[in-house]
Design a protein around this nucleic acid. Structure first.
Lengths: 136, 136
DNA sequence: TTGCGTGCAAAGGTTTTGCATGGCA
DNA sequence: TGCCATGCAAAACCTTTGCACGCAA
């Protein structure tokens, strides 16, 4: 994505910090709001939603919808995730980063046959991870 | 799954008919509401939501969440869609059904390397379709 | 007649928007 | 100083709930 000008504010730092500290969890906008209200810097829900949108567009976090919570959830994925795909376990929520070579042949096949260019940032492959397959 | 007593009402017939006639589309509760309002039998949104819940519980339709539409979508379950993947255009929303062979090699690779079993019903491959790539 | 189904209106919850103010660079 | 970011309140949505009435069986 292009370099949009962005300022570093206390709110943004606090929000991103919270998300980074909870890499392994799905976080709702409300979780962030509740957490910040108990801490040093507060941020309004408006700010939280707007900043989360930015982070999603930049590919730094991912957004999903949780039926269970009836709200959107966000999760940190890191800055170098623009080149590969992600697997997400339906059961434990764990995210696995896929080697990019695995998908390159398929990307090409799909472009050739359907003219469809897959967006690897937005696309998430859902399923069941190794651990959860065993304990089932 | 058990045999709950159910009445056959005009509203329910109309709702189910609409869903069946749009097997290949994602339908929101609102789509049904709008459609019915233009036609023979009307149904309130309350009725629609309640009946959709029933159909989901009975396994007749499937419910998932559409980020695009920011609302739940429902789809009649046809056997054919349980075996392959779907491409969804970020721009026009068109859904393309993928030939299952294209993905089978990848599924195997991912199981071998990560032990991850992809769920082809829940997974949707997002991107840009041929038409929208051209007009861009 | 019985009791499930319906519709209305209102509530509940999440997310977005408009606008004036605040604050980083 | 120039803009972007923020916060408030209200709006816009989607979905659920309570309650009285309607209607299939």
């Amino acid at each position: 994505m292009n370099e949009l000008k962005k300022y570093k504010t206390k709110q943004r730092v606090a929000i991103l910090e919270f998300i980074e500290n909870n890499k392994d969890k799905e976080i709702t906008a409300n979780d962030i709001l509740m957490y910040l209200n108990k801490n040093e810097f507060k941020a309004s829900q408006t700010t939280i939603y707007r900043y989360l949108d930015n982070l999603v567009k930049e590919g730094i976090i991912k957004k999903y919808y949780s039926e269970e919570k009836s709200s959107s959830c966000f999760q940190y994925i890191g800055k170098k995730c623009n080149e590969h795909y992600h697997l997400k376990c339906n059961i434990c929520g764990e995210i696995t980063h896929l080697d990019s070579e695995i998908f390159s042949s398929i990307e090409k096949k799909i472009i050739d046959k359907y003219g469809f260019k897959i967006d690897n940032i937005k696309t998430i492959l859902y399923g069941t991870c190794k651990k959860c397959s065993k304990t089932k």
